[in-house]
Simulated assay, not measured.
Amino acid sequence: MAKRVIVIGSGIIGASIAYHLAKAGAEVTVIEAGEPGGVATRASWAWINASWGNPEPYFELRVRSIEHWHKMQSEIPGLAINWCGGLIWDLPPDELEAYAAERAKWGEPLRRVDRGEILAIEPNLTTVPEFGYFAPGEGMLEPLAATLALLEAAKALGAEVLAETPVKWLAEEHGRVVGVMTDVGVIHADETVVAAGVNTAPLLDSVGLTLKMSAPAGLLAHSKPAPKLLNGLVMTPGLHIRQTAEGRIVAGTDFAGADPEGNAEFMASDLQAKVEAMVQGAEGLGLDFYTVGYRPTPADGFSAIGRPHSKNGLYLVVTHSGVTLAAALGLFAANELLTGTRDPLLATFSPDRPSLT
């Protein structure tokens, strides 16, 4: 008999888990408090990368996920990923050189590019340094569209998606999680996956579990649509930019977005002004809107994946870098839930590590 699995949360992490579970033959129900696509996913800068300030185990996890994104893209026609590469000079020169040397040691050589090469990659940039680095394996996607494509692929394999269905608490019997309580009563399952972003901690609290996490805010400015002005991702000091498939330039002070600190409109306007000064052809383009996302982040900054306190019937996935990691975490979670096999890359990412409990 197929294992019944509830996935709480329909952001990119929950959607990937649902897809991999359904592909493996599970009976899957995705439960979402709001509209399909979740909350944090919609406000992501949506950079797929392994190249930014990570210790080696986290780097290896990200590399594995990038590899699996390529496989998933071949399986799901609607999963449009632009493997455009990324330009990086968002560090002082000596730190940038040390960073590139570390990545080369780990097997991810970044290509050193001089001013002329930078302008060959991004000819519309008005200000460029003497040198930077180019990461050819990086990509970007449109986060909501990609998540909806994953959900549709899961539904085509038999998954059910219940939108506008808030989970009140986790249902527990004799120490085992047996499903979720909703406005229509308990929905039962053999396994319940919490991939609920910022709502993770309250759900765990309902069964007496604690996970230390935060949800820092990140603001991104979205320009009005424009003809193609950027070819890929550009990370400069204080301004990270990319252009979406519909032509909007999305900007943040870093890839996660800036903390608006109660001054969101001013910050968004300032970011747009920097974009128009940085990108030739964007002059007078104007700000269309801004988003503020709250990034679900375990207390030490790294992914938490697995059964918290070995709680039967319960599985947890919470992470920042959700766009990069969704592919691998969906695969790993499905394998562990259905076969009991835990991927070795998850060894350092237990939800029970001391920094989170």
Rank of each mutant, 00 (worst) to 15 (best):
D90N: 10
D90E: 13
L91M: 12
L91D: 11
P92D: 15
P92T: 13
D94W: 13
A98W: 10
A98G: 10
Y99S: 08
A100R: 00
A100M: 07
A100V: 04
A100Q: 00
A101S: 14
E102F: 08
E102K: 09
R103H: 10
R103F: 09
G107K: 12
P109M: 07
L110E: 03
R112I: 07
R112H: 10
R112A: 07
V113F: 11
V113Q: 05
R115Y: 08
G116S: 12
G116V: 11
I118K: 03
A120Y: 00
A120Q: 07
E122I: 00
P123T: 07
L125T: 12
V128M: 08
V128G: 01
V128Q: 09
P129F: 13
F131T: 02
F131D: 02
G132M: 11
Y133M: 04
F134Y: 11
F134K: 03
P136F: 03
P136S: 02
E138I: 06
G139C: 04
M140A: 06
L141R: 13
E142V: 12
E142A: 14
P143L: 05
A145C: 10
A145T: 06
T147H: 00
T147V: 05
A149V: 05
A149T: 01
A149F: 05
E152D: 08
E152C: 08
E152R: 06
E152G: 10
A153D: 06
A154N: 01
K155Q: 14
L157H: 11
L157D: 07
G158E: 05
G158Q: 01
G158K: 01
A159C: 02
A159H: 00
V161D: 07
A163C: 15
A163T: 12
E164V: 14
T165G: 07
T165C: 15
P166G: 14
V167D: 03
K168H: 13
L170W: 13
A171Y: 04
